[in-house]
Design a protein around this nucleic acid. Structure first.
Lengths: 347, 347
DNA sequence: AACGATCACGTGAACGTTCACGGAATGGGC
DNA sequence: GCCCATTCCGTGAACGTTCACGTGATCGTT
């Protein structure tokens, strides 16, 4: 393989002298000192316009770019935020990411994004990385508290939509209870009594949405029990389709279904229609998230809409608070955003 | 408010001496030298297990975390990639981001994400930031070459889906021509002769998709001219709805429409149906992207599907190439990914 | 002519970590 | 008793930048 050998040769000779071009190289070429170069590239004063131009010219010919590490070491500003998203393919999380990105950018923060792909192992890896590379972390994390403490020791941490189990970290949650109240007021008002749910979490670790769903069931004294909620193994349309099949098999007389999120609810609609059921006449379907997607399906999805902007904004604000008063998090942070029921045709 | 006052006091006194806890602090507490601390936290050998534990204990009580800047300065590894996305809310771009994230993670790279929100100004700001904070940039950039060179001087840069105008940077494009060939083979095969297009770019800077659309029109000698393509001002469903209205107003006899992307195509379907047209019987609609969303709408969307994974992978690989052989980009890089026509009901 | 002010620029020192050394113990072999 | 190997640990010196100073010039003022 002579080609490969050549390549090695060609790469080898300059690599020996391969060294980052530093500010001193520029200084030497321009015939000035480091400090003057620094003044030129940072638009400080106290420099002759002519020399400034000469210096900048030198940086160009050398292709000089300051080392972000050396720079970050001196000026202590520069905040970078770690963002752990469980699934960027899910439009809901994408929207949350957009919100965080936008608010962080306003503050001049950089954001390193990790997609944990709904895997607790990947989630912990992400935390490991981010605890080295970021100054604070925001994320949807499903690992238990002590695991988080182990993988992000001493980091300012804000959890998004943590379940019923409290956390000792900062968090911004969703007022699921208020949401379910609106949902049940609407559904029972329309005469529904047999209401099922498609949860997005396994039975052994039920979601807050399920808990509050069941609380409402009890409150309205509905003739349905915990077996009226079936759990979907993923947060996707196809998982929702399968879940709806299971639910309809178990309880063919169900008249309304609330989904863990919009994707699952869309799956429910599809399964219902595939089985010849009319939505909402035979079975009403209600989602949770407020995705743009909900307007596009047939029929349009009634849903509990979450203000993702607000969610992101609150999270970043809470990080900022932890960052400035970096004593204990003090458990002060526990913001909540309240879902809003947007009525469309599906329920 | 005595509580608040207390807090201030408590914060004030240590703040004067507010200084990052360094490796030396840990060393002092553990009664060892810096180097031994370094050995302990980096799992190097040459350290007594007992002292190692003592050191780690010290790091815990002090809440010590090594400075990523100082660390990055010594070990020269650590690559961070900048990713400029034009709109993370668009599922297509979200999918591309996921792909880049995933492949970058395999290499142990960190990714800083910026959403330019389809704004050239924001895009340039993002480049400014990333050229300081990253080692290379991947992105959907609409700014002209010289502008890119100005805002990311000397950076390895890989452009995603650059239009017809060539670029001097690395790029991974989409074989729009092959895609349009498939589209027209299918549409003309079904007897369509009056085919319109909803472009996603303004008339004065038409997209590659439009160019190749028109090329196919000429190739098949169809009785339609450039005025059969109307440009949508945004890449959204609602923009597609408006565009379709305009197209139908101008050419009520159109029998098939190809959208710049899936979102616009979905808008076209909605407008068509709102106007009482049956899809695909009265008018066929064809998308471009291959979003999961396309399966959910009514009727399901026929589309030219792009392999976003592949796109992301090629981009990262090209960055890696530029990063290792950091002589000139040499214009070697010009990968392309070929769309695949997936047939559903809409066309 | 002497003085202070302003301008343009240079010199050490720091930031916090890791690397290349070197050195002091300890243990075992003859 | 010596020698060598091994284990454990510490000491300067770097990495590349910016900050706090200091130093000559130049200019106008009294």
């Amino acid at each position: 393989m002579p080609g490969k050998h050549d390549e090695r040769q060609k790469l080898g000779s300059p690599r020996a002298a391969r060294r980052r071009t530093t500010i001193d190289d520029v200084a030497k070429l321009a015939g000035v000192s480091r400090q003057t170069v620094s003044r030129a590239i940072n638009d400080k004063g106290e420099i002759d316009p002519a020399t400034k131009e000469r210096v900048l010219e030198a940086t160009r010919t050398l292709g000089y770019r300051p080392s972000r590490f050396a720079q970050g070491m001196r000026r202590q500003d520069s905040v970078t935020l770690g963002l752990v998203i469980s699934d960027l393919s899910n439009p809901y999380f994408a929207e949350v990411a957009v919100a965080v990105l936008e608010v962080a950018e306003e503050r001049g923060w950089h954001v390193i994004v990790c997609d944990s792909r709904n895997d607790e192992g990947k989630e912990q890896e992400a935390l490991d990385v981010l605890s080295r590379q970021a100054d604070a972390i925001i994320g949807h994390c499903s690992s238990p508290d002590d695991m988080l403490a182990r993988h992000a020791p001493g980091m300012p941490l804000v959890l998004l939509e943590r379940g019923v189990d409290q956390t000792r970290f900062g968090s911004v949650g969703i007022d699921t209870e208020a949401g379910m109240q609106q949902a049940f007021a609407h559904l029972t008002g329309a005469g529904h009594r047999r209401i099922g749910m498609l949860d997005g979490a396994p039975d052994d670790r039920p979601s807050a949405r399920r808990e509050h769903f069941l609380a409402q069931v009890r409150l309205y004294d509905l003739p349905v029990g915990p077996d009226w909620v079936v759990s979907c193994d993923r947060h996707s349309v196809s998982a929702g389709e399968r879940g709806m099949d299971a639910l309809l098999d178990a309880h063919p007389d169900v008249t309304a279904v609330v989904g863990f999120n919009d994707l699952i609810a869309v799956g429910a609609i599809r399964t219902a229609r595939r089985r010849g059921l009319r939505v909402p006449d035979d079975v009403a379907v209600l989602g949770f998230d407020g995705l743009a997607l909900g307007e596009l399906v047939e029929p349009p999805l009634t849903t509990l809409s979450i203000d993702k902007r607000e969610l992101g904004r609150l999270a970043v604000e809470q990080v900022a608070a932890q960052l400035s008063a970096d004593e204990k998090p003090a458990a002060e942070g526990d913001a909540r955003v309240r879902p809003e029921l947007v009525l469309r045709a599906s329920a």
